[in-house]
Simulated scan of single mutants.
Amino acid sequence: MSLLIPDSGLIFWMLLSFGIVFILLAKYGFPVIVKMVEERKVYIDQSLQVARDANEQLAKLKSESDIILANANKEQGRILKEAMLERDKIIYDARKQAEIAAQKELDDVKEQIRLEKEEAIRDVRRQIAVLSVNIAEKVIRKTMQTEKEQMEIIDRMLDEALASRS
C-alpha cells in the first residue's frame, strides 16, 4: 500500500459512507439549510428595500427641509425689514414728539419771561411813580408855601390833564 494510492476496499467504504451521509444530508439537511438561506436572502432583500425607502424618504425630507429653511430665511428677512422700518418710524415719531414738547416748553418759558418782564416793568414804573410823587411833593412843598400857590398849581395841572386827553 502506498501513501498516495489507497486500497480499493478503503475507497469502497469511503464512497459508501459518503453516499449514505450525502443521502441523509440531501433528504434532511439540505432542505433546512436551503430554507434558512432563502429566508436569510428574503430578509436581506427586505432590509435593502427598507434601506432604499429610508434613503428616498431622507432625500425627500432633506429637500423639504431645504425648502422650509429657505422660506424661513425669507420670512426672517421680511420680519427684520419690517422691524427696522417700525424702529425707524418709532424713532421718527419720538423725535417729532420731543421737538413738539421742546417747542411747547420753549414757548412756555418765553411766555413766562414775557410775563415776568412785564411785571418787572410795571414794578419799576410803580416805583418811579412813587419816587416822582415823593420828589414832586417835596419840591412843591418847598416852592409853595401858601395854600393859594398850591391851588393855582393844582388848577393848572388839571387844565393840562384835560387838554392832553382831548
Rank of each mutant, 00 (worst) to 15 (best):
A102D: 05
I121S: 03
I79V: 12
S47V: 07
A59R: 11
L106I: 10
Q103N: 07
I153P: 00
I140A: 14
I11A: 07
I44F: 05
E152H: 08
N134T: 09
E38I: 14
D88E: 15
E38H: 07
E82F: 08
I128F: 09
D108A: 15
A102K: 09
A70E: 12
L15C: 09
A54I: 02
R52Q: 03
I135Y: 09
S166P: 10
D93F: 03
K27Y: 02
V130G: 00
R52K: 11
V32P: 00
M151I: 08
A102Y: 00
F18K: 04
G29K: 04
Y43P: 00
D88I: 14
A59Y: 02
R78T: 13
I67R: 15
E119A: 14
R126P: 00
E119M: 11
L10S: 13
N73S: 10
K117W: 02
I23N: 02
R95C: 09
L48I: 06
L25S: 08
Q49K: 02
E111V: 11
T143V: 14
E118A: 03
Y92I: 03
A51G: 00
R78G: 10
Y92E: 14
D66P: 00
E86H: 06
L24F: 09
A72R: 12
I79N: 08
V130K: 12
E118Q: 08
I20G: 04
L85F: 15
K110T: 05
R114G: 01
S63G: 05
I140Q: 06
D107K: 12
S65T: 09
Q150D: 06
D7F: 05
I20Q: 03
K148I: 06
V130H: 09
Q49H: 02
E75Y: 03
A101D: 08
Y28G: 00
Q76Y: 01
K148C: 01
G29R: 02
I121H: 11
A72I: 03
L58M: 02
L58P: 00
A26K: 07
R156E: 02
V133T: 10
K81C: 03
M151A: 15
Y43D: 09
S166W: 09
D7V: 05
W13T: 06
L58D: 09
D159V: 15
L3C: 10
I67E: 13
M1L: 14
D123H: 13
N71H: 08
K96G: 04
I154N: 02
I44C: 08
F12W: 04
F30M: 01
K96F: 02
K81D: 12
Y92H: 10
V130P: 00
S8Q: 06
K148A: 05
E75F: 05
L85N: 14
I91D: 11
I121W: 03
E105R: 02
E82H: 06
E119V: 06
V21Q: 04
K35R: 12
G9I: 11
L58E: 07
A72G: 10
Y92S: 15
A26T: 01
R114V: 10
D107W: 02
E38W: 05
M14R: 05
E82P: 08
Y43N: 06
A120P: 01
L80N: 15
V139I: 07
I67V: 15
E147R: 03
G29M: 04
D53P: 00
Y43A: 10
T143Q: 07
A101L: 07
A72W: 01
E111Y: 04
